[in-house]
Write a protein that binds this DNA or RNA. Structure first.
Length: 285
DNA sequence: AAATCCACCAACCGCATTCCC
DNA sequence: TGGGAATGCGGTTGGTGGATT
């Protein structure tokens, strides 16, 4: 990569966006629609690189973005999906259209990671640690997965002294609202959903969904924390390889169903959850 | 009241992928 | 088909404000 980053050009401004810049950007997008970011700085006179404009739009100005506290439901979905997909924040965000990948990533890094760590410690002190023979697995991922499958643990995660990202009034919220009407009449200009769509298609074989779901539910109900260990391959995304996304290393007879089943169940359930999560109007549809 | 610490999150950076000529 | 440009994505940083000492 010999070429300089676009934002290194002379005269390109960095740092926090001002309300004035936001308005300029929003006005432009309102008129021309998102995309063709290269032309945005030139046409608007903004002293920002195209990348920065895109980021500002997708992470902050885009209408329909929900800010503030993550609900326990959202938290649960993030944990589920992180265990399933790894740090594929964009893919995870596609399941939570009101949240940006950046938001989810930040929330994971600042809240959930700590919670999982804390819980891992708590587990250790309560003799609930996973079987010792797990040296080849990613402990953290194991816990992620256990969280994702155990409702009691989810409750623990959502204990009162946990999360506390505060709601804050954003001046750009108002700007976003201005755009909502426009977005309603526009054909999904900025929504990223390819991953989501692909995964939904992948789960369209519905014939055994109920069975899978009931299997999974009973497993969750049966499963003590220490009983069910599903390991997620260490490293980046587990969805990059098709097919098997995790290897089961359960140590007793009440073993969980194969992860591919869990995955099906998860995807199926999430398809419904996504709708449930839409407490705000679906402005993209 | 001032200094320090800490948590949060917007924004940047660099690499990967996709697009287009 | 190859190369450059644009775009997308994930990791990281740094500013800010609240909490604590």
């Amino acid at each position: 990569m010999g070429r300089p980053p676009c934002c290194d050009k002379i005269g390109i401004k960095k740092g926090p966006w001002t309300p004035e810049e936001d308005i300029i950007l929003v006005s432009y997008i309102q008129e021309h629609g998102p995309g063709n970011w290269r032309s945005v700085p030139t046409n608007t006179g903004l002293m920002r690189c195209s990348k920065s404009c895109r980021l500002r739009w997708t992470n902050y100005l885009r209408p329909g973005i929900k800010r503030g506290n993550f609900t326990p439901h959202e938290e649960g979905m993030i944990i589920h999906l992180q265990a399933l997909l790894g740090n594929k924040w964009a893919a995870i965000a596609s399941y939570l259209p009101q949240r940006t990948d950046n938001d989810i990533k930040n929330y994971w890094n600042t809240h959930l990671k700590k919670k999982l760590k804390k819980f891992q410690t708590d587990l250790g002190s309560h003799n609930l640690a996973p079987p010792a023979d797990n040296s080849s697995t990613n402990n953290f991922d194991q816990f992620s997965w256990q969280f994702s499958g155990n409702k009691q643990v989810s409750k623990l995660l959502n204990s009162p002294n946990s999360s506390s990202s505060s709601l804050y009034a954003s001046s750009t919220e108002n700007i976003s609202r201005l755009l909502e009407g426009w977005m309603r009449s526009s054909p999904n200009p900025s929504r990223r959903n390819t991953d989501h769509d692909e995964m939904l298609h992948a789960t369209q074989k519905k014939q055994d969904q109920e069975l899978v779901k009931s299997c999974e539910n009973s497993w969750i109900q049966d499963g003590g924390i220490s009983n069910n260990i599903v390991t997620i391959p260490k490293g980046k995304s587990t969805c990059e390889s098709s097919g098997v996304v995790a290897e089961k290393t359960s140590t007793n007879s009440t073993s969980p169903p194969p992860f591919t089943y869990l995955e099906k169940w998860l995807l199926d359930e999430n398809a419904g959850q996504v709708e449930e999560l839409m407490e705000l109007p679906m402005i993209f549809t």
